[in-house]
Amino acid sequence: MIQAIIVDDERYAREELEALLAQDGDIRVTACCANAIEALKEINSRHPDVVFLDIQMPQISGMELIGMLDPDAMPRIVFVTAYDEYAVKAFEDNAFDYLLKPIERPRLNKTLERLKRDCAPQPVARLAAPQLTQIPCYRHNRIRLVRAEEIEYAYSELSGVHVATADETAHTHLPLKVLEQKAGLLRCHRQYLIRPEVIHEIQLLEQGLAEIHTRSGQVVPVSRRYLKALKDRFGFR
């Protein structure tokens, strides 16, 4: 059984695709999401085999969503669009799956057959922008889009990944790995990332450890393993 998630901001579009997929006994739709933030959460928790992804969505587009997914746990993506010449050209150039709305039954069947043969993800990440500009976060049960350059540091703990700006912290579904690669943050600890621009001072401690003091007065730990890389970065030997 192939597990699928549908991501589209229009209810009728989700319903239509769900109805079409329901006719195939080998596919099970486990979630329908109305935006990229819901989708990020569902994809991270349900680990679907395939995601049917609309490109044009509010705040965070389908392409941006791809950039936020953990590259090591990437599901197979089937893009869905009504009309987007440039995107369609990119899909064709890269031989990626895509469907055009309104979705035609025979075309969908072809896609599903291919999925049943091979569910391995395609390298769709190359379509996504190399840098993220906004990071979807939760704070007090509300969705917030935090601008990437406002993040001072990020850390992971048992409850998940958190990002901290100068005056607040929020929970996010993005893995540290993605933030490190795409949000301009630097690894300083197995569980911590720091934005180099906000470092005020690095206080060296015993046993090769250190602490970073940010300009806004926050303290971030530095582990032995990453201290050297950090020193190299600022030209200390």
Binding site: E10, L100, P102
Partner: peptide, 8 residues
């Protein structure tokens, strides 16, 4: 195309 999809 969006309209047609909605209608369908």
């Amino acid at each position: 195309f969006n309209a047609l999809n909605t209608i369908s």
